[in-house]
Computed example of a mutant assay.
Amino acid sequence: MTQSTESSAGTIWLSKGAFDKLTAELEHLKGPRRQEVVSAISAARDEGDLKENGGYHAAREEQGKLEGEIVKLEQVLLKADTTVPSDDDAVAPGKVVTYKFDGDDDDEAETFLLASIEMKPYAGDLDVYSPQAPIGAALTGAKVGDAVEFEGPTGRAIKVHVLKAVPFQD
């Protein structure tokens, strides 16, 4: 499912590559992996007394975890937005954002990907901040050159300057 990056707050921005990998993972979990667990349960059940059968109980626990992971992945993919963000100077989900703290004399710029945490395994060395995180919420919609202030985790006001906002490339 692809929607505009400006759709509801429940939308999760994923790159097309991440979407494809998560789809393949879901297919694996629902197919071969699910069959492995069902086979393990069946084999353990054939051993007899289920009350004292540790293998059976372990396999059933594994089945519960697997089904939970399947539901989670289905929800992520259902909410996924793979729209490539526009190549303007505005900060939006799917953009790699470079900023500098106000008054930071060491000229050290910080860079992150504005996306949901599900993008973390696919973002390389980039930190990933969600649009709901304080810095993500504050910077969303800001343009290159803007100074934005937000409340940090300690309650202190933090001011940053947007230096760059470019679409993420897989």
Rank of each mutant, 00 (worst) to 15 (best):
Met1Glu: 13
Thr2Tyr: 04
Ser4Arg: 07
Thr5Asn: 11
Thr5Tyr: 09
Ala9Glu: 14
Gly10Ser: 11
Thr11Val: 13
Ile12Asp: 01
Ile12Val: 14
Leu14Pro: 01
Phe19Leu: 00
Asp20Glu: 11
Lys21Glu: 15
Thr23Lys: 05
Ala24Leu: 05
Glu27Gln: 11
Glu27His: 07
His28Asp: 11
Lys30Tyr: 05
Glu36Ala: 10
Ala40Met: 01
Ile41Phe: 04
Ile41Glu: 03
Ser42Cys: 03
Lys51Ala: 15
Gly54Asn: 11
His57Ala: 07
Gln63Met: 15
Gly64Met: 06
Glu67Ser: 06
Glu69Val: 00
Lys72Arg: 15
Leu73Pro: 00
Leu77Ser: 10
Asp81Leu: 00
Thr82Asn: 04
Ser86Val: 09
Ser86Asp: 15
Asp89Val: 09
Asp89Gln: 10
Val91Phe: 04
Pro93Gln: 13
Pro93Thr: 10
Val96Ala: 02
Thr98Leu: 05
Tyr99Leu: 14
Glu108Ser: 07
Ala109Thr: 13
Glu110Gly: 05
Phe112His: 03
Leu113Glu: 10
Lys120Ala: 14
Pro121Phe: 06
Ala123Arg: 01
Val128Ser: 01
Tyr129Trp: 10
Ser130Arg: 07
Gln132Trp: 03
Pro134Val: 06
Ile135Trp: 07
Ala138Trp: 06
Ala138Arg: 04
Gly141Cys: 05
Asp146Met: 01
Val148Cys: 09
Glu149Gln: 15
Glu149Phe: 01
Phe150Gly: 07
Phe150Lys: 06
Glu151Met: 14
Pro153Lys: 12
Thr154Val: 13
Arg156Thr: 15
Lys159Thr: 14
Lys159Val: 05
His161Pro: 08
His161Asn: 15
Ala165Met: 11
Val166Leu: 14
Val166Cys: 05
Val166Pro: 08
Pro167Leu: 10
Pro167Thr: 12
Phe168Met: 00
